[in-house]
Each structure stands twice: as C-alpha cells, then as structure tokens.
C-alpha cells in the first residue's frame, strides 16, 4: 500500500519510530487526509502510543496563544523535554483554503531538533476536526515527543472540542478585551484546567485577573476550580510557573505511558457519541420517544431516568 510518494505504511511507521522528520511529516498528511496508507499507519502505531502529555491551548484570536506556545517550547526544551506542536487555524469558508501563520511566532524553534511544529487547517476533515487532530497527535506521540501542544482558536464548537480532548486544557485570556462575558458565552472557562492571563506586562492584566477570579467565585462551588497563572511571553513572566503547573498535572498521572492515548480516545468517543446521539434523538420519528417526553412533562418520570431510557430507545433504533 503506497502513497503518492511511494512510501508504504511500514516504511512510514519505521521512520516515525526512528524520529525521521520527513516520515513524520508525510505520515501526518496521510492520517490527516484519511488515505488508506494513513489508516494503516494509525493501526500500526497504536502499540507505540500513550507516552506524550497532551496540552490544549485555546482562547480568542490575538490572545497571545502562539507566542505563549513558543515560550513554552523554550521552557520545556530547557527542562530536557521534546515538544510537538499542532497549530490549528481556521480555513476560509469561501474557498476552503487557509493561511496558517501561527508558526511565525515560533520561528526561533524551527530548527530545534527536539521540536516538530505542524500547521493544520480546520476544514476538509470528513471524520471531523477532533478526529483529525487526534490522529496527528498519535503520530507525534509515536515519534516520541514528550509533550504535544495543540493550539486552537477558541471560537466555534469544533475548536473548543479539540481543547477538550487534551489531558491539560489551558484557556488564554488577554487583558483589555473588556467583555468577560465572551469567555463564558463560548463556554470555554468550563473546560479550563489552567486559566492563563496573558500579556501580564500590560496594565489591564490586573483587572482581567480580578474579573476571572470573580467569575469563578460565582460559579457552582462543586465545579472544578482551575489554577490562574499570569504570563507575559514577551517579558518572560510566569512561564516557569505555567510549566510547573503543567508538570504538576503530569505528576498526577495525566499523560503517563499507556494511559494518555486511551484517555484521549475516550474523550473523542464521548464527543462523537454525544454528537451522534444528539443528531438521532432530535430527528428520529418515534412514538416511544414522544411518549417519554409526555411522561417527563407530567412528572411521571424524572429527567435522568428519561434520558437513560431515551438513549436506550435511540440505540435500539426505536419506533
């Protein structure tokens, strides 16, 4: 099974495990495009996965994500770690083309041996963006990168879903946007393990941190409390602390060998299953589901019971 440049899946897998950069790069294209070779590569690397810690970084456009990724690459290389990066940028809804510019900010690491940076466009993945990103992450994991950072713009459901799959989710909040509501609306505060107040060299960073602390304090107290870290990538403030928080999560067992790849596959499943269920449950013609709705409305059955029953009905292809 060859591809356009003549490599077989076995050649690619051998190259990936050797850390050969052309093999890694072409394998990424193959899995991203879901070619037959790509599927064979994914199958054959499965037993080499689970070592990398996956970090998701999201936030508004211009929040300082790429600059932060660059600073983190430097910090982790200094700690003896290797770093893979997947930088996702939106495709044009008109042409399907894309300008992928994140790596301009990471230029100083282009030649670093223990770094591999790959740009990915949001469009054109028939199996969904999350699935494509997980496949690319798998290739980098098999290639032996200790940390894999995925950068996505925190707008749009599919982008937020990518961050959700990560072991450690970082939401970047820049000062001076003024609209704290924006972050809540997008629902991205909810997914954060670590909230980063970026551009801490700017005076408004104080207010942003206060706003975030206030928003967290008025949430449901049982909700997960993310750490807040102030960072300036240009003035090198807080990068060590942020890397420490990321490492602390690794020490908790997040991303340990054999655990990471299954964990992200489960989260991907959860998303895909939820999407599938939502589509079916809202569109299927079913007297049984209608009856269930009436029963909930009358108070004959509680919501949780009804949801479980509805899931069962949908899975059985209900009538």
């Amino acid at each position: 099974m060859g591809d356009r440049l003549g490599g077989s899946a076995d050649d690619y897998v051998a190259g990936i495990l050797r850390g050969d950069r052309r093999s890694i790069a072409r394998a990424i294209s193959a899995v991203e495009n879901e070619t037959a070779t790509g599927r064979a590569i994914l199958r054959n690397i499965q037993r080499h996965l689970g070592r990398a810690q996956l970090i998701g970084i999201t936030g508004a456009p211009g929040a300082g994500k790429s600059t932060l990724v660059s600073a983190l690459i430097g910090e982790f290389l200094g700690r003896g770690r290797s770093v893979g990066v997947v930088a996702v940028d939106p495709s044009s809804p008109f042409s399907g083309g894309a300008i992928l510019g994140d790596r301009i900010r990471m230029e100083r690491h282009s030649l670093a041996e223990r770094t591999f940076i790959r740009s990915l466009a949001t469009r054109g993945h028939s199996g969904g963006l999350s699935r494509a990103v997980v496949a690319v992450v798998d290739v980098l994991d098999a290639a032996g990168f200790d940390l894999i950072i995925v950068e996505t713009v925190g707008v749009g459901q599919s982008e937020v879903e990518i961050a959700e799959i990560a072991d450690t989710r970082i939401v970047v909040c820049p000062p001076g946007l003024g609209d704290d509501v924006q972050a809540i609306k997008a629902g991205i505060l909810e997914i954060a393990d670590i909230l980063v107040v970026s551009k801490a060299d700017l005076p408004l960073a104080d207010k942003t941190e206060l706003d975030l602390r206030f928003m967290l304090s008025v949430r449901d107290p049982s909700a997960r409390q993310p750490a807040i870290v102030r960072v300036s990538s240009v003035a090198s403030i807080g990068i060590t602390e942020l890397a420490d928080s990321i490492d602390a999560r690794r020490d908790l067992g997040v991303g340990k060998r054999g655990i990471g790849s299954r964990a992200r596959m489960r989260r991907l499943f959860a998303q895909e299953a939820a999407n599938l269920l939502r589509r079916r449950m809202t569109s299927i013609e079913s007297p049984a589901l209608d009856a269930l709705c009436d029963a909930v409305a009358c108070g004959d059955i509680d919501h949780e019971q009804a949801s479980l029953q509805a899931m069962r009905l949908v899975m059985e292809g209900c009538r």
Binding site: R21, S91, G96, I99, L100, R103, I104, L111, S119
Partner: peptide
C-alpha cells in the same frame, strides 16, 4: 483553495527547508 503556511520575514534557507519538510 490552497493551504498556505506563511513563515514571515527574515527566514534562513535552513529554516525554510526544515519548515517545508515539517509541513509536507
């Protein structure tokens, strides 16, 4: 309809070739 990686200014030939390879 193309995906264009723009690497900015002042790139060394070494880094352009490395990026071209990484980005396939």
């Amino acid at each position: 309809g193309m995906e264009v990686i723009y690497s900015g200014r002042h790139n060394s030939p070494e880094s352009l070739v490395e990026v071209a390879i990484q980005e396939d």
